[in-house]
Amino acid sequence: MKSTKFSPMTQEQIDKKWWEIGNYFRRNSLWMLMYCTGCCAIELPPAMTSAYDMERLGMGPMATPRQADVLLVTGYLSLKTLRRLIYTYEQMSEPKYVVGFGSCTINGGIYHDSHAVINKLDQYIPVDVYVAGCMPNTEAVMNGFTDLMGMIKNKTARGWLDYKERNDWYKKNQLDSLGEVLVHDEFHE
């Protein structure tokens, strides 16, 4: 006969439990950092204001990467911007998520043959959700956000863990494209 006495959870199980509780809070309060690099950024004002009102999902704009949970990359990334994007991404506090907007972040979009613009964002930083389109509908943007929430719930939004685990790979890609992530130009001694 099985004993009915209380069996204490292992530390791992407790952590898991806490993580699930944390996930509830995290998905219901996504604070965005908008890295408005391209034209897709124009989809954010209707998403934020009375037309679609993302605040009802608990989302809101934040001022700095330290406070934000999700990084929105809204459009093409030139090499100069990519450096800064990586710097910004690394400053965010964990767990952190990335949403790529428009075809530019997926495959370069209309800039696919430009020498100054990168084509695939997920080579450089892990992207959890892509919102396709050139540019995407606001409905698509909102759908992307709900998708991200679902992924957080299912624990599949693992991009930030991936960035830790495969850091060498990401760093290698970054260096291949950029030469180096840091910049030294006339403004910096």
């Binding site: 806490w18 809070f25 995290r26 009375s50 608990g58 949970d69 400053q91 964990e94 767990p95």
Partner: peptide
């Protein structure tokens, strides 16, 4: 502002979420 607005307990969620994150 003619929006629906967040849940009334949204601020609690925000605060507890912040506590669940790893800061610098």
């Amino acid at each position: 502002q003619k929006r629906i607005g967040p849940k009334w307990y949204q601020e609690f969620i925000d605060i507890f979420k912040l506590f669940s994150k790893r800061s610098v």
